[in-house]
Amino acid sequence: MSEEIWNKRAGREVRKIDHELFERTVLPYINSAHNLARWLTRNEHDAEDMVQEAFLRALRSFDTFTAGRDARAWFLTIVRNSCRTWHRQYRSHETSMEWDMDAQPAVTAWSDPEAVLIKNANSQLIRRAMEQLPFEYREILILRELEELSYKEIAQIVEVPLGTVMSRLSRARKELYIRLGQPTGEMGV
């Protein structure tokens, strides 16, 4: 099969892609993409692999991206999905969120005396606590706290209803804060 036919069969109009437009659309969000991938894979090497993979995937599906749409959300969705596949493949043994975790009643009270306010929250502590959280909690926390996306944008990227974003974010924060409130060195749960 010639390359041309292959491209056609795969629905790719590779030659038609405007590479300059692609660069202008996607590169402004390369830091957001890297930051998300870095938190999701928890190491630099895999983060770069994921961003590179997402970059190529985005290029291939650029013809389906219509101008005027939110490019950041579009690109971050691809990055997130790459990381998710990677996580399922290589980190499936880790504690992952049960599929029905969102259906459990939320931790309603924020009055846990153990969860004392940390006066000297430092980056290293936060990183260690974050790295123990399930994938689903990490992604939602990064998208909200660091990328400052709205619930609606997060719902699109993570592909869950808005109400789930709300309850999952609430649970993720409480999990994180409770871990941070525990004395150093005893965070392993």
């Binding site: 590179q52 190529l56 290029l59 929250a121 980056s123 706290e145």
Partner: peptide, 27 residues
């Protein structure tokens, strides 16, 4: 407090250059 202290990991300059080069090659 958590938000202020949460690290942000931007892409390195070399990595962005590498992506750019790949893109132009694929052009």
């Amino acid at each position: 407090s958590v938000r202020v202290h949460m690290e942000y990991f931007p892409a390195s300059e070399e990595f962005v250059q590498k992506l750019r080069a790949q893109l132009h090659q694929s052009g």
